[in-house]
């Protein structure tokens, strides 16, 4: 089985979010970039496929050269090779077009992505990629088994889960549940050494006009102070929630 894992390069979840140039650019000053948390679950699940039933794992990112350390980290975790499509990833549709092009030429059976990136939270890329290629697609995937070209996939739904049957080639938008937190792989020294020698191929993007453009950013208005209610007077909280906040 040929697996392609889509890796998004995002600010660490503890990052302070600031903007520069008149609020038109995300300020990367002091921000540490990591593998998108959802993608970490997906990559570890791909490693299980590789170890238990045999598979090759290519990791891919659409981004500029600054994302290469993140791809190297994925190689250190155990992917076999990496592809970087050399373009700014500003629009979900644009990224999906680039991925679809690589997938078409690469003959992948299973494309595993995180359900959303923790930067723009678009949640667009997996579904759009599948749709462009006319591949099967399952979002919010919390479990997957593959036998031959048949796949059994579990999807997180409101208030429960759903089991689905489908076939390869398949794209999933994955999240925690594919593996648990304690299962997540972190690169060890040997992995890091080996990753340096693994191929990281840079390919040029195909032409496609971005469908969306971010014009500028704004920060939420700061919160007014928290009203503190005495622990012995919880009836005051009930009163405030009813009469002031009007939520009960």
């Amino acid at each position: 089985m040929k697996i392609l894992v889509c890796i998004s390069h995002v600010p660490d979840t503890t990052s302070k979010i600031n903007f520069t140039e008149n609020n038109t650019k995300f300020d990367i000053n002091g921000v540490q970039f990591v593998i998108n948390p959802h993608d970490e679950f997906v990559l570890t699940r791909a490693m299980w496929f590789k170890e238990k039933q045999g598979a090759s794992i290519t990791v891919i990112n659409v981004g500029n050269v600054s994302t290469e350390p993140t791809l190297r980290k994925a190689l250190a975790i155990g992917a076999d090779d990496a592809i970087r499509v050399n373009a700014e990833a500003t629009d979900g549709f644009y990224v999906a077009k680039q991925l679809a092009e690589v997938i078409k030429n690469g003959g992948y059976d299973l494309i595993m992505a995180g359900k959303e990136s923790m930067d723009y939270n678009g949640g667009m890329v997996p579904g759009m990629t599948a749709s462009i290629l006319d591949f099967n697609f399952v979002n919010a995937c919390i479990g997957i088994e593959v036998e031959g070209n048949k796949a059994t996939v579990t999807r997180d739904i409101d208030g429960g889960k759903e089991i689905l049957n489908t076939e390869l080639p398949l794209v999933i938008g994955g999240q925690k549940g594919l593996v648990e937190d304690k299962d997540l792989r972190i690169p060890n020294m040997r992995g890091i050494m080996m990753a340096r020698k693994k191929p990281l191929n840079v390919v040029e993007p195909i032409d496609f006009d971005p469908t969306t453009v971010i014009t500028d950013f704004e920060k939420p208005t700061p919160k007014s102070n928290c009203k503190i209610i005495d622990a012995d007077k919880v009836e005051e909280l009930v009163d405030l929630l009813h009469n002031e906040a009007k939520v009960i």
Binding site: M118, T215, D216, F217, E218, P220
Partner: peptide
Amino acid sequence: VFSSKAFDHT
């Protein structure tokens, strides 16, 4: 965007 830490205009 940014997990509700900001907004953008698209």
